[in-house]
Design a protein around this nucleic acid. Structure first.
Lengths: 155, 155
DNA sequence: TAGAAACTCTATAGTAGCTATAGAGTCAAG
DNA sequence: CTTGACTCTATAGCTACTATAGAGTTTCTA
């Protein structure tokens, strides 16, 4: 059973270009080609792409996924590395949540400085932003930084 | 009082290249130049860069900051737009927190599938990742996606 | 069987917010 | 007068894609 890239895209819920991108990045093996040079995928590719997309839906980086795929392809050792990778990932998420919650507190504090429709000159928010912020101890919010991407659809 | 880019970097806690980047992006006005073509900054630049860095520490995008700077530079209208921008930003943070918390639940559920040091072939995590995940309703975690940047230091 | 629509191909550039590098010029101290 | 610290411009790289151009292939319809 061989399908073309468009069908694989529909099945996996990701874009055609993304599949080609994964191939270029070495996450998906190069598939066979038809007479007209179209990519032809089989069950192995379908399962592997599902694996990748599931990992992505859990917000793993392509680097982490590469590691997991490597462990899957080399099933000699024990799965301690898999556990460790996932534990690290969970911890990362926890750090991000904490940073975001603190960030939200700062934003709310700032928001309270202006409630009305006064002229911009007198706006407490803009004035608050000009000062060298030190409301409760200026943490680094780098961990909270996010992309505003479109949805990662289901597989 | 005119300082060079390195001093401004030290004062603001951001890199020299970042300052030049902000200038290129039109967030910082082009400064005067010395005889040797070095940038010379005054109080106006210092305050403006502090404003920018504070906004960045609150995780605003350069686009949002551009808007705020525009409102600051055009102080004719009321500050309703400032409020609205901040409200949007707060809401965005809330959405991200919710997405991350759900993500964490999925990760923890996955993590429970393997606890021991069994061979990778039998690892419940890898097997869980191969299946077309639908643990409790596969949300889109796009809002939780983050960069793992270095710290945004204080100003 | 011709033509058009739908699909696929490669290659390249763009996104955000920087960071890193190369290669050259400037300035102050010893 | 040389050393070292600083600055300059321009370019490429990072993540995980997305968008575009221009060409070829396959499939459907008239």
């Amino acid at each position: 059973m061989e399908i073309r890239i468009g069908d694989l895209a529909k099945r996996s819920g990701c874009e055609v270009v993304t599949i080609r991108y994964y191939e270029k990045e070495g996450l998906l093996p190069k598939p066979a080609r038809s007479g007209g040079n179209f990519r032809l995928y089989g069950d192995v590719h379908i399962e592997r792409l599902q694996f990748i997309r599931h990992c992505r839906s859990l917000d793993m980086t392509l680097g982490e996924i590469r590691t997991l795929l490597g462990l899957r392809d080399n099933p000699t050792q024990d799965c301690g590395e898999v556990n460790a990778l996932l534990d690290d990932h969970i911890q990362l998420v926890e750090v991000r949540v904490a940073a975001l919650l603190q960030l939200k507190q700062h934003l709310l504090a700032l928001r309270e400085k202006c409630s009305g429709a006064r002229p911009v000159d007198a706006c407490g928010i803009l004035q608050g932003l000009s000062k060298r912020s030190r409301p409760t101890g200026e943490a680094s919010f780098a961990a909270a930084r996010t992309s505003r991407g479109s949805s990662t659809s289901q597989i």
